[in-house]
């Protein structure tokens, strides 16, 4: 999924550099307005985990492999804004490993951080709306969204290729092949995303951004010391 230098011409790459910068800049603005101090290490952890996950190519079809994008995963765990920033950081660090072209960084950030994380979070919220409002719905919705984002990011590449591909090819064929193989990779993305989200929900549901509205009530119960407050003196003890 990492576009190397040379697939897309310079003007198109530069234009998507602007798209990516605008997307990440907007994410920084939104994240700075809502991020709490305790999410700092979590967002770092999320980026580190996605970096590791992206190293693990799994076979999908004859002689083809795929790996996690992690956009939906990051967005569900730390929120869409920090999630998009985390994926952008992963893509930036991967450049040190000569993975994904430098001139293609804007294209890759657009496909994986903007479509992957921001688009993934939107799809996650849509899927969640169709499912019962319970905690176990969260990993299911995350998996569905993760599945869709992979062929969607592949379609993003085809759009970029249509605008500035360095070879003239019938676009229908490229679109069919890209979406087809990435739908298979999407199954892996869905499994990894759903498994990771359900693991975090099983251990620390309060840390999952996408599950916040379902666990809000819990922390209110575990404050036995609060009973001492004078304002509750007249209330009957609950045993």
């Amino acid at each position: 999924m990492h576009i190397p230098d040379g697939f897309i011409d310079a003007p198109t790459s530069a234009a998507f550099g602007v798209v990516a910068a605008a997307g990440v800049g907007y994410a920084v603005r939104r994240a700075s307005a809502e991020a709490e101090d305790q999410v700092v290490p979590l967002a770092g952890l999320c980026a580190a985990f996605v970096f590791a996950g992206q190293m693990l190519n799994f076979p999908v079809a004859l002689g083809t492999s795929g790996h996690l994008i992690g956009g939906t995963l990051a967005a569900v765990l730390v929120g869409p804004w920090l999630g998009a920033i985390a994926i952008a950081v992963v893509l930036l660090v991967q450049a040190l490993f000569a993975d994904g072209g430098l001139t293609a960084l804007g294209l890759n950030i657009t496909n994986m951080a903007v479509i992957g994380a921001l688009g993934g979070y939107l799809l996650f919220r849509l899927a969640l709306r169709l499912l019962p409002a319970r905690l176990p719905s969260v990993p299911v919705a995350a998996g569905i969204a993760a599945f869709v984002t992979v062929p969607l990011a592949a379609a993003g590449f085809v759009a970029e290729f249509a605008l500035g591909g360095t070879v003239d090819l019938p676009l229908g064929g490229v679109l069919g092949s890209m979406v087809g193989v990435h739908a298979l990779i999407g199954v892996g993305e869905a499994v990894i995303t759903a498994a990771t989200v359900s693991l975090v929900i099983a251990t620390r549901p309060d840390l999952v951004y996408g599950a916040r509205h379902l666990v809000r009530q819990a922390p209110l119960e575990i404050r036995p010391s609060a009973v001492r407050a004078p304002s509750t003196a007249g209330q009957p003890a609950d045993g």
């Binding site: 190397p4 697939f7 002689g63 083809t64 492999s65 795929g66 090819l169 490229v174 193989v181």
Partner: peptide
Amino acid sequence: ASSSPDGLEKVAEDKGFLEQGRDHA
């Protein structure tokens, strides 16, 4: 991890635009 080409590399190879890719800086 699998060392097979990933989805994009495979499509680029099949469609014949893999050689457009330049070496990473």
